[in-house]
C-alpha cells in the first residue's frame, strides 16, 4: 500500500504538474534528481576547460570576445544548476567534493582534447548542439527549479551553437588546409557528441525510473536520433564529408539510419580512461585551491563590514 503523500506526488506527476522544493517527494526521486542536476552542473563547469584552452589563441579579436562570452555563459549555467540542485538539500561544497573525488560524473565529451582551432568551432556546433537537443527536452522535466533553469539556459545556448557553426563554416570555405582542419575536427567530435546522449535505453541504469517520474521526457536513443537527423543537412551545407559512411535516409522510419557507436570507448572514458580525465579534475582542484585567497579576502572584507555596522549601531 502506498502512502497518501506518495499517491499525491504521483498524481501531480501524471497531471504534468511540477514538483516544487517544499513539496513532499520520494527519497529516490530526490536522489535521482541530485545525481542528474549536479552531473549537469559539473559538465557546464568542466566544459569550460577544453574551450578555455583556446581563448588566448583565438585567431582574431572578434573570435576571442565571442569565445570569452560563451565560456562565461557556461560558468553561469553551472551556477544556475548548482543553485537548482541546492534546493534539494545538498550543499555546494558536497557537490564539489563529489566531483573532485570522482563520485559524481560529468559529460564524457569534455575528456576529449581540443587540438586545433577548428575543434572550438566543432564544440560549439556539435557539443552545444547536442546539449541543446537534450536541454530543450528537459524544459519539460517534472522538477520546477530544474525546468526553469533549463528554459533560461536554452535561451542562452542558441548563440553558442551558431558561433561554432559560423567558425567551422569559415574554415570549410577556406583554404584546403583549413577545410582539412574542419573535416578532422568533425571526424573526431561527431562520435563523442552522439555519446553525450548516454548508453542505449536498454543499458541505461537510471532511464526507466527517470522516465516514470518525468525527470527525463525522452529516451537517450530518441534524443540521439533527433541530433543525427538534424546534423546531416548541416554537414552538407559545410561541404564536408559525413563521418558516418552508413548514414542513410530510411523512408519507412522517417529517420536516418546510422552506425552503432563504439561503446567500449564510451565506457572507458566514463570510467576515467579518456585522454583528459585526470587533467580536467587536477585542473579543477588546482583552480579551486589557487582561488583560496579570493575566498579569504571576501570573508575578511565581510567581517570588516559587519564590525563597522555594529560599531555604527552602537
Amino acid at each position: 500500500m502506498t502512502a497518501p503523500q506518495e499517491e499525491n506526488f504521483m498524481r501531480k506527476i501524471q497531471a504534468e504538474e511540477k514538483i516544487e522544493p517544499k513539496d513532499w517527494m520520494p527519497e529516490a526521486y530526490r536522489k535521482n534528481l541530485i545525481r542528474q542536476i549536479s552531473q549537469h552542473a559539473h559538465s557546464e563547469v568542466i566544459g569550460m576547460q577544453p574551450e578555455g584552452n583556446w581563448i588566448t589563441r583565438a585567431p582574431s579579436l572578434r573570435r576571442k570576445v565571442v569565445l570569452l562570452s560563451k565560456v562565461q555563459d557556461e560558468a553561469g549555467h553551472g551556477l544556475y544548476l548548482y543553485s537548482a540542485c541546492e534546493t534539494l538539500g545538498i550543499s555546494r561544497s558536497e557537490m564539489i567534493e563529489q566531483l573532485q573525488s570522482g563520485v559524481a560524473k560529468y559529460s564524457s565529451i569534455f575528456n576529449y582534447p581540443t587540438l586545433t582551432w577548428a575543434d572550438v568551432g566543432a564544440i560549439g556546433w556539435l557539443v552545444d548542439g547536442a546539449a541543446i537537443v537534450n536541454q530543450v527536452s528537459l524544459q519539460r522535466t517534472s522538477y520546477g527549479p530544474y525546468s526553469r533553469g533549463m528554459i533560461r539556459i536554452c535561451k542562452e545556448e542558441s548563440f553558442h551553437q551558431r558561433q561554432g557553426y559560423e567558425a567551422i563554416l569559415e574554415l570549410a570555405k577556406g583554404s584546403p588546409g583549413q577545410k582539412e582542419m574542419a573535416q578532422d575536427a568533425l571526424n573526431r567530435f561527431y562520435w563523442p557528441a552522439l555519446m553525450m546522449f548516454g548508453p542505449h535505453d536498454s543499458e541505461s541504469a537510471h532511464s526507466q525510473k527517470s522516465m516514470e517520474w518525468k525527470i527525463k521526457r525522452e529516451t537517450n536513443d530518441d534524443l540521439r536520433q533527433k541530433f543525427v537527423d538534424q546534423t546531416v543537412k548541416q554537414i552538407e551545407v559545410l561541404g564536408l564529408e559525413h563521418p558516418d559512411k552508413a548514414i542513410k535516409w530510411n523512408e519507412e522510419r522517417g529517420h536516418y539510419d546510422s552506425s552503432d557507436l563504439n561503446w567500449d570507448e564510451f565506457w572507458s572514458v566514463i570510467n576515467g580512461n579518456g585522454h583528459c580525465n585526470r587533467q580536467r579534475i587536477e585542473h579543477h582542484v588546482a583552480a579551486h585551491e589557487e582561488g583560496e585567497w579570493v575566498r579569504d579576502a571576501i570573508t575578511a572584507y565581510n567581517d570588516k563590514k559587519r564590525a563597522k555596522k555594529a560599531q555604527n549601531a552602537a
Binding site: 562570452s69 548563440f159 551553437q161 551558431r162 558561433q163
Partner: peptide
C-alpha cells in the same frame, strides 16, 4: 557593446538557419 551574445548576430546559410 556585446551584440555577439545574441543568436541573431550570426548570419548562417538559409538551409541551416533554424539552429
Amino acid at each position: 557593446d556585446k551584440p555577439y551574445r545574441h543568436a541573431t548576430y550570426y548570419v548562417l546559410p538559409d538551409p541551416v538557419n533554424n539552429m
